[in-house]
Design a protein around this nucleic acid. Sequence first.
DNA 1: AAAATTTTGTTGTATTTGCAACAAAAATAC
DNA 2: GTATTTTTGTTGCAAATACAACAAAATTTT
Lengths: 150, 150
Amino acid sequence: MREILREIGMIARALDSISNIEFKEFDLTKGQYLYLIRICEKPGIIQEKVAEMIKVDRTTAARAIKKLEVQGFIEKKNDDQNKKIKRLHPTKKGKELYPFLKREGDHSNKVALSGFSEKEAEVLLDLLQRVRKNVEVDWDFVKKGNKREY
Amino acid sequence: MREILREIGMIARALDSISNIEFKEFDLTKGQYLYLIRICEKPGIIQEKVAEMIKVDRTTAARAIKKLEVQGFIEKKNDDQNKKIKRLHPTKKGKELYPFLKREGDHSNKVALSGFSEKEAEVLLDLLQRVRKNVEVDWDFVKKGNKREY
DNA sequence: AAAATTTTGTTGTATTTGCAACAAAAATAC
DNA sequence: GTATTTTTGTTGCAAATACAACAAAATTTT
């Protein structure tokens, strides 16, 4: 029954690949759409949290986000209370792009779920959320330098 | 209901990240385990098919596989009939590593499905296979340079 | 059988990715 | 209140990833 993880890997790589190709049109390079979408949906979020949400290395997120800033899709704002953090906000340019990113995601979703009933889609989401919660515990553990025993 | 794709992305990145960290111990660098596992399970497979199975660019697969060869995990053998293709086979060293890769995968699988009934795991696999089949049509299409309309 | 197309493999180049190591602010412990 | 630990962010470096462009064998078309 280990194929579950393999299926997930295949699906994720295929969709990511498609998105990367389709978003070149908007001058987004590999992976950038992931960050921009999250920042648009949660303005004021900090970099560290974006990395956690996406499940990517902190330093990778740092660079991707810096590039989004340089390109003028987002901006970093200092927090009044906390001098350490930088709150991320989409610029006008970023906000304008968002609907296109969303539309692409919606389309991929439709393709992915074609032939699914409403009920099946619901069940899938529920099961996947449970898998994700299970997996993120280990991800946190291992990323912090701990060793899984098995 | 678009969260399905996001969940899949999170799960895939988290698990891949864990595997990459855990396989450093065996001198496998990022991604290599994907290729080695497939070659061990389907000895004689050619590079092009490996890339298709994994859903990764042909040239990425080419380089990852070349590195596996240099490191002595696999070897490329010429085909008698077809002078163009090179059949991939695990070496003794590669075969010896396989059980460790498998064990790691089994463990991640167990973690991912913890709290799942037998039935639920089955349903999930079925749904994911359907998603994968849906998605790979678009992947082939887009990778070949075509443009999705939506 | 010759021509055109597809398949398979490679290399050059640009970019992303992630680990290690550092720094500074904030939060917690003593 | 000071010391320690955690959080957040950055940069240097090594490596993977993928696009473009090429080459040669195999297959299909004409």
